[in-house]
Amino acid sequence: MMAKLKPEDLSRIAEKMRRQTLLREGAGRAKVTVHMGTCGISAGARKIMTTLLGLIDQQQVQDVILTTSGCAGLCSREPMMTVEIKDKAPVKYVDLDEKKTLTIFTDHVLGGEIVTDFALGMGSERVS
């Protein structure tokens, strides 16, 4: 059982999480987010996730954070994933399958080179 929070605890958690997710504090070198809403899963996001888990396990990669998230909004191009390398803008990949995932993992996640053929774009959405 976790302790009940007080208002000031929120910023503490936020700061801790920000450090982790922004890859600043060396928690990881790259972060891969697979977009798994109902649409994404039915388009095959789970297969992508399995492939990535397999790759990370097989190649004993230690410094890649694999995480999931909800729908990214563009249903017609599912399954999608976002690859973020430390200190670089995140890149969104669309219309994925196992083969493309392998290429992206090898070239971009490990090799640092964006796979332009499968990429939709880089950067983040405008949040107001």
Binding site: T38, C39, I41, S42, A43, C75, S76, E78
Partner: peptide, 18 residues
């Protein structure tokens, strides 16, 4: 089914096909 982006959609038990 609320998967309108993948229309037309069917499900077989838990599996969804778009």
């Amino acid at each position: 089914l609320g998967c309108c982006g993948l229309a037309p959609v069917i499900t077989v038990n838990e599996d969804l096909y778009g």
